[in-house]
Amino acid sequence: MTAIPLSILDLAPIPAGSTVTDALRNTVDLAARAEEFGYRRYWLAEHHLAPGVASAAPQILIGAVAAATERIRVGSGAVQTGHWTPLSIVEQFGTLDALHPGRIDLGVGRSGQRHAETLAREGRPGPEREASVVDGLLIPKPFDQRRLAGSPVLSLFRALLQQPGAETPDFAEQVEQITGLLDGSYRSAEGHPARATPGENADVQLWILGSSGGQSAQVAGERGLPFAANYHVSPSNVLEAVQAYRKAFKPSAVLDEPYVVVSADVVVAPTDEEARELASPYALWVHSIRSKLAAVPFPTPAEAAAREWTEEEWDLVADRIDTQFVGAPGTVVAGLEVLRRVTGADELLVTTITHDHADRVRSFRLLAEAWGLTGSGGSP
């Protein structure tokens, strides 16, 4: 079987001892290298209030990356619809498309809404499903969201990322408005049209990103849109997400058949041992996200080696660490092939974080060479 395309998800990580400027320059540099290596698309995440992540404004970063490249598709992975109105999203991405025609992906997700939902979860029963291995792919025990429900940071997100008193509409309604503004069919409840300029008739690809078999997967399937399932952050739910999407799928003007991208966290080095050392700070980084909802600057391997873990602390990050693909090129390719086979992915979305930028660039290069990418870039 011909290898499926690989793409990149970038958070613009800030290494310990580095700066935001360094991180953003590294992102632009990596994107140009990714185009040379043959990756299909380069997506920027949206993260807020995180000292170790510089991708708080992916729309701006997308413009910088698109300007520094020529062929690779560039987009969001994902715009958090809980923080933006459909019109603002369409106008922003319409502007990007006008500047870089035919290369822009608009990925949207419910992350901003899920923060608010998590506030109400405290006290509910936690997940009971145990870890399993499905045809060689580890499906870990679900992370218990009740651990986050009491965090004051969730309230802070809501206070700083939404206007006072604002209520986020239903996700399906937001996607319908985005679609209508893009294709010119939008009408208000009273029947009045709205014309997004820029935005209307923009040549952007609309994607839905999701971490479970819930509303995001349902909306993507019912509207016949491509869907990106999240193995690198919510690995326990990836199979139910892709299954729910395929079950709900209806052919559309966009797709005749389902199209699934699956994300994966990867670190590649010449040897398994070196890759494990480069990946070792990841546990500290994930712990900062899970315990404080704020990613710290990415630590050094030496800092990781000095850390002593309690059983409770390790349990907080185990699902993320156990589902990383870390090793020499052949080791990682074998693991990603299992992920592709079990999920039926049409494309894989790879994210890599190391303390040193050169190691991160090398990781993507080694993977591209081992996977057989040709440097063609392009789109589905």
Rank of each mutant, 00 (worst) to 15 (best):
F93Q: 14
P101V: 10
G63C: 02
R110H: 05
D144G: 04
A304T: 12
S234M: 08
R276N: 12
T27S: 15
N26Y: 08
V204K: 10
E122P: 00
A306V: 04
N230V: 11
E347S: 05
R146E: 10
N26A: 14
E122G: 14
E347Y: 06
P235W: 12
V219Q: 13
Y39L: 06
A264L: 05
E35Y: 01
L148D: 07
R129M: 14
G375V: 13
G102W: 12
H232G: 01
L239M: 14
D346L: 05
L154S: 10
A16K: 08
A67K: 07
R276C: 09
S212H: 07
T19P: 04
E313C: 05
E312S: 12
A202C: 08
F157L: 12
A283V: 04
D170F: 02
V233N: 07
Q59A: 13
D144F: 02
H115V: 11
T351M: 13
L284A: 00
H192G: 04
G136Y: 03
A159K: 13
V342W: 09
V28I: 15
D22G: 04
D356Y: 05
D359G: 06
I139Y: 00
K250Q: 15
A334E: 15
D319C: 01
L138A: 10
V254N: 05
I139P: 00
V361F: 02
V286S: 04
A3N: 14
Q174P: 01
Y245R: 01
A217E: 09
P127T: 08
P13K: 05
R246P: 02
L106P: 02
E167R: 14
V134I: 05
P152V: 07
P15N: 07
K247H: 09
N237C: 08
P380I: 10
L255A: 08
D272M: 10
V268N: 05
V317Q: 06
G38I: 06
A159E: 14
A120M: 11
W314R: 13
F143T: 08
P193M: 10
T323I: 03
K141Y: 00
V267N: 12
T27F: 02
H47W: 13
G213F: 09
P301F: 08
A116K: 04
N230W: 00
G184P: 04
V74K: 06
A275G: 13
A159V: 00
E312I: 03
G75P: 01
P51N: 14
S288V: 01
D29G: 10
A283Q: 05
R103E: 06
W43Y: 11
R73V: 03
D10L: 02
V332T: 11
W207F: 12
A202W: 01
E222R: 15
L336F: 14
A368R: 03
T19L: 03
T343R: 10
G102V: 05
N26S: 15
L181C: 03
T331H: 05
A345D: 13
W314E: 10
I353K: 01
R246L: 02
Q145W: 04
A78C: 11
P164V: 07
L49I: 15
G375H: 12
Q324W: 00
